[in-house]
Amino acid sequence: MDSSEVWKNCIGAISNLIEEADFEIEEDGMEMKAMDPSHVALADFKLSSAAFTEYEVDKPTKLGVDLTEMDKIFSRANKNDESTLEYTEEDNRLKLEFIGASTRRFSLPLLELEEEELPEPDLNFTATAKVTAGTIREGLKDAALVGDNVRFELTKGKFLMKIESDTGSAEMELSEEDEGLKDLNVDEPTKAMYNIGYLEDMFKAARSKDIVEINHGEDLPIQIIFKMADGEGILKFLLAPRVETE
Rank of each mutant, 00 (worst) to 15 (best):
I99A: 07
I99G: 00
A101L: 15
A101W: 15
T103S: 03
T103D: 02
R104K: 03
R105H: 03
F106H: 07
F106R: 10
F106Y: 13
L108C: 03
L108Y: 04
L108W: 04
L110W: 06
E112M: 13
E112K: 13
L113P: 01
E114K: 07
E115K: 07
E117I: 03
L118H: 06
L123E: 05
L123R: 00
N124V: 14
N124L: 13
N124T: 14
A127S: 13
A127D: 10
K130P: 10
V131G: 06
V131C: 09
V131N: 09
T135A: 14
I136W: 03
R137F: 10
E138T: 01
E138F: 06
L140W: 05
K141T: 08
A144H: 10
A144D: 15
L145S: 09
V146Y: 03
D148T: 15
E153R: 02
L154P: 01
L154F: 14
T155I: 13
T155E: 03
G157L: 14
K158A: 09
I163F: 10
I163L: 04
D166P: 00
T167D: 15
T167F: 13
G168H: 13
S169P: 09
A170D: 08
A170E: 11
M172Y: 04
M172D: 08
E173A: 11
E173L: 15
L174V: 01
S175V: 09
E177P: 01
E177A: 05
D178M: 07
L181Y: 00
N185T: 11
D187I: 07
D187K: 14
A192L: 06
M193K: 01
Y194Q: 01
L199E: 12
L199K: 00
E200F: 01
